[in-house]
């Protein structure tokens, strides 16, 4: 009997150790992070900034200057309310004291400088595929932006989502850190578009349905689904949804927000358009090129009309 109790205890400790080991926040390799601190190009970083859509979440609601990244936007989800933090160049309230490696760990592995997990409301699942040079350039640009005082409030999450350690389990299941490899059989524009959409623009983060754990259902990537922010339905942007659109139509929507029917996109997509409008037309055309190549996939069924 006593032996059984000992065995149970040993197994429990072993299990816990394995859990702790598997769910530990893992940053980039030291080798990857080395030598990043210098050489960033702020002009190129500005393109990364717009393509990555940083302003959409990190500009304080109501603030019209999209370079003031004081944070505070609330993302209401079924897991609780996430609040975007201050990522301005403020030394203590923002990320002004961060190294490039800190930013790379945050954006590409979801790990904070203190070694904690970030929640995947921050789309590091997408940024993980980016080139590390782009993160370095982005940091060079972020450092040119104004310092905004004031920390954003903490997330408001119910148990068990309030336990950050569990994000480690989520990462094992859903975080893929493979860089995007160019497809030699496609054009340069298509590859650029894919990179912009899948490594920076994080289109699929909203335009895909998610499972009950909040992971993207990969078979239905880009096939749309219920709006994770609540009311509404995110459109299917595979050929199933955009079949009748030309590439020029997709590029035009990214530039102005207008559909071929001269309808105008709503909700947070209107803000995404502000980011896309700041890119070059060549980049918008490249994204259109890639998005128009997505094969038709049926999304989840819409609820019946009420």
């Amino acid at each position: 009997m006593k032996r059984l109790a000992t065995l149970c205890l040993v197994l429990a400790v072993a299990g816990l150790s394995v859990f702790v080991w598997i769910t530990r926040p893992q940053g980039l390799d030291a080798a990857q992070a080395a030598g990043l601190e210098s050489g960033g190009d702020a002009a190129r970083g500005e393109i990364v900034f717009h393509a990555g859509g940083c302003a959409s979440c990190h500009v304080k609601p109501g603030e019209t200057d999209r370079k003031k990244l004081g944070g505070g936007l609330a993302l209401k989800t079924e897991f609780g309310t996430f609040i975007a933090p201050n990522i301005s160049s403020h030394k203590s309230d923002g990320i002004g004291a961060w190294s490039v490696a800190d930013l790379a760990n945050a954006m590409q592995r979801g790990v904070s400088p203190k070694g904690e997990h970030y929640y995947p409301a921050f789309p590091y699942t997408t940024y993980a595929h980016a080139r590390i040079e782009d993160i370095r350039d982005l940091m060079a640009y972020l450092r040119t932006l104004p310092a905004v005082e004031g920390k954003a409030p903490a997330h408001d999450l119910p148990f068990p989502f309030s336990i950050r350690r569990f994000v480690g389990v989520w990462k094992v299941l859903f975080l893929d850190t493979q860089p995007i490899v160019a497809d030699a059989s496609r054009t340069e524009a298509w590859n650029r578009g894919r990179y912009l959409a899948d490594a920076l623009g994080h289109c699929a983060e909203c335009h895909s349905p998610r499972n009950i754990l909040g992971g993207i259902i990969s078979a239905q990537r880009y096939a749309g689904g219920p709006d994770p922010e609540g009311r509404g339905w995110v459109p299917n942007i595979t050929a199933k949804g955009l079949g009748s659109w030309s590439k020029a139509d997709v590029s035009e929507l990214l530039a102005t927000g207008f559909t071929p029917d001269f309808d105008s996109v709503g909700s947070s997509m209107a803000d995404v358009v502000k980011n896309m409008a700041a890119l070059s037309k060549a980049d918008r055309d490249a994204m259109a090129d890639y998005l128009k190549s997505l094969p038709a996939v049926d999304g989840p069924a819409k609820p019946p009309k009420k």
Binding site: W233, G257, S264, V265, G266, S268, M269
Partner: peptide, 16 residues
């Protein structure tokens, strides 16, 4: 027509 997106951003849900 900038008014369209300016208003839809806050007042209209996403839709297919």
């Amino acid at each position: 027509v900038r008014a369209c997106g300016g208003c839809h951003e806050g007042y209209r849900a996403k839709k297919n």
